[in-house]
């Protein structure tokens, strides 16, 4: 698996993790398939951006995503628990919704603010559209999918049109600078602080570290490679 394929895979895993969970995701977690998949990706590309620099205890956490040998009843409960937790964290909550998954909320305290419009224009100018049943343009899943899409395009460009690669890299860098880094660290921190479910805490931590690494790799020489990860260690403590 190439570095780029690994990045594509991790964007996909993260956008799945922050989409509404269904029975399939619950089973992926419970039976350890998700953990194995993540570890597989990280192992295969330990030379690459995605695998290196993740804190070792996060790697341990990822390996232990699934609880040991769940009973049938526990399995059914987990599906509901996961759904409840997703609703509580990201959709509507009594009490307070702690982690709205929209950039506009973090920057403007409203929905469909400037950030959402900027995202929408970016998607459209790159030939994408937001599905009718999809999330808003500044939802975490939309943004992760857009990055995944840019990586897919980069992968295609490597084979057919190498001139385009720097353009695509610049697009990714700018998207990180203008959008991801303005709110995703806070978003992840909130999930880590407020989730009652291990899965979301671990995925948030993975996302915070992964996006920090991505941001660093897209900005070679500009950032201290370990700065963001150190921040994560402090937050964990």
């Amino acid at each position: 698996m190439s570095d780029l394929d690994a990045r594509i895979a991790i964007y996909e895993i993260l956008s799945s993790a922050f989409s509404r969970p269904g029975r399939d995701l619950a089973m992926e977690i419970l039976y350890g398939r998700l953990a194995r998949r993540i570890n597989g990706i990280l192992k295969e590309c330990c030379e690459s951006s995605a695998g290196c620099c993740l804190p070792t205890d996060l790697l341990d956490q990822l390996r232990s995503l699934s609880p040991p040998a769940p009973e049938e009843r526990e399995r059914l409960e987990f599906v509901v628990d996961l759904d409840e937790e997703y609703t509580r964290l990201f959709i509507n909550a009594f009490p307070t919704l702690r982690v709205p998954p929209y950039e506009s909320y973090y920057r403007e305290k409203r929905m469909m603010g400037r950030a959402a419009m900027e995202c929408l224009f970016l998607y459209r100018s790159d030939g994408l559209t937001v599905r009718d049943e999809g999330e808003l343009p500044d939802h975490i899943v939309s943004q992760l999918e857009y990055l995944g899409f840019l990586c897919l395009a980069e992968s295609a460009a490597q084979a057919g049109s190498p001139d385009a690669v720097p353009v695509l890299r610049r697009k990714q860098r700018e998207f990180y600078e203008k959008h991801i880094m303005t709110w995703v660290p806070d978003f992840c921190f909130r999930v880590q602080s407020h989730s009652k479910i291990h899965f979301y805490r671990v995925m948030a931590r993975l996302m915070k570290n992964f996006t920090a690494i991505e941001n660093r790799n897209l900005n070679p020489g500009k950032l201290d490679p370990f700065q963001e990860v150190m921040h994560d260690e402090i937050a964990q403590a």
């Binding site: 956008s15 998607y123 994408l128 559209t129 937001v130 599905r131 999809g134 999330e135």
Partner: peptide, 10 residues
């Protein structure tokens, strides 16, 4: 992009 939930080719 078949796995995308939110975005699609326009």
């Amino acid at each position: 992009l078949a796995g995308f939930r939110s975005l699609a080719i326009a």
